[in-house]
Design a binder for these strands. Sequence first.
DNA 1: GGATTTTTCTACCATTTGGTAAGTCTTGGC
DNA 2: GCCAAGACTTACCAAATGGTAGAAAAATCC
Lengths: 203, 203
Amino acid sequence: MAPRGETKERILAKALESFSTIGYDGTSLDDLAEALDIRKQTILYHFVSKRGLLNAVLDDSVKKLTESLEEVLTSTNSNRDRIEDLVRSVFRVALEQPLLLGLLREVSRPGSPAAPRLKNQMSPLMSRAITWMEEEMESGRMRRTDAQLVLLSAYSTVVGLATEIEILRTAGVERVLRPAAQRRQELLNFLRTSLTPLEKQTI
Amino acid sequence: MAPRGETKERILAKALESFSTIGYDGTSLDDLAEALDIRKQTILYHFVSKRGLLNAVLDDSVKKLTESLEEVLTSTNSNRDRIEDLVRSVFRVALEQPLLLGLLREVSRPGSPAAPRLKNQMSPLMSRAITWMEEEMESGRMRRTDAQLVLLSAYSTVVGLATEIEILRTAGVERVLRPAAQRRQELLNFLRTSLTPLEKQTI
DNA sequence: GGATTTTTCTACCATTTGGTAAGTCTTGGC
DNA sequence: GCCAAGACTTACCAAATGGTAGAAAAATCC
């Protein structure tokens, strides 16, 4: 028998994989258990219910995502570098852990049982980013725009990228990095032209 | 009793709505039947199986999508206008029928049972677009790039937009047109800078 | 090394699911 | 008016699903 939380971690990892590929409804606890060579009741023991498992996977994923971005948001670089750092780190996560963003995509679907929870989980990060952007705008270092719209646009680009990567991989495309880099550049350009004050634009 | 294919059409419409919001696995034939005030076996009578229903919905949607683009692709405008026309018409579909793109998003997920079928359905349109682009490149009217990559990028932008719109709507945002227009402009800029030959760029 | 707690398993269960079989009803052609 | 074809329904069913109850096994603590 596995000591400590090892089994729990294994379940979380496999659940993330399953939820983010074949979806929540498409995942059955029986299949999950079989894939882990575990009895279904072991899953329910750790997570009470299937919904509980989804919540746990979600919490875990958002935590990892937040950690990845936290260090960038608290850095002391200049604005321009900061935007670039932010975009780069998000894309790094998307490339290294496409499953994580696949989950986001799965769960952010309207009508998903976990959508409100995701919203709550993400809102601190979001509102923080919005606040930061609005401060920058107030001080004139960033052009006045709807911060929420910009964020949303960036968000859907990244989630779209994650989808794209998985599709490419399953389609057998070997070089998956080039389109990603291309999209990253695209997003970066968009953010810069959206956010850089007009008088500072050097393009 | 409803004459002609009226019931069939109603089932198709409701199935599209359900598949593209709560997903294929999340949709039960019983619920679908109840929502239509119909017996489940009526659905199975028309479409043989749940999978058959998905295929029918898919065929129907791709057909509508293709029709929307066909007229643009066969138009005789200049390249530049043609790209803009294409983008505009795709976005019009995305705005008027978000369900249609929601289905694309749902179904294009790797591991989806309908993914290969979608691929087959879309490939004529895709390969046609790629051929056209490559001809333009050959003749120098369009800059040399990987046509497939550009298409993929555009595709994921549009599907991402559909997601965005649905999320906005469920989040209670009333003005859904502005972000859509913003993304459209973004995509348009990307395509132009990607495709316009260097010597012709006027930006 | 025994008691206790944590972890995992076996045995069931109620409900839902997609699907089959066999009708009934309706409509249009003759 | 009859009847064949199409449209729709009732009656069932086997498998899968999420979940409960409680025993067994392993790890931990003293």
